[in-house]
Amino acid sequence: MAELKLIGFLCNWCSYAGADMAGMARMKQPGELRIIRLPCTGRVNPLLILKAFQQGADGVLVSGCHPGDCHYNEGNYYARRRLELLSRMLPAFGIEPERFHFTWVSASEGARWADVVTEFTGKIEAMGKA
């Protein structure tokens, strides 16, 4: 089977640091996810996700600071609305909604990050290529 293409959009302040921590602690995690670092989940234009799917991504993961912890105070609140709308629209576009996941991982949650990646990769592996 061809290798899965998984894209992760991570906020610089929480989830990227969390992923970094998981790496530094040598936690075991699958390697298919390609991470793109963004300043904030508020920067995640839903079109980035749709474009990723259109260009052949098998899964897209978005992760940022927990609500209330945004480095810019409110970026993730806007993101939450946009991404909720997007996830409900995916079926109409012909994209399985399970291929998209958004979540919150803080800079101190290295272990949680490893779990998120493992679970997400496993789910997409079970679904197969898009």
């Binding site: 609140y77 939450r80 996830s87 979540t103 919150w104």
Partner: peptide, 11 residues
């Protein structure tokens, strides 16, 4: 946005 009221399917 609505800090408390927004529905969330994210986990």
């Amino acid at each position: 946005f609505d800090i408390k009221g927004d529905s969330r399917s994210e986990k």
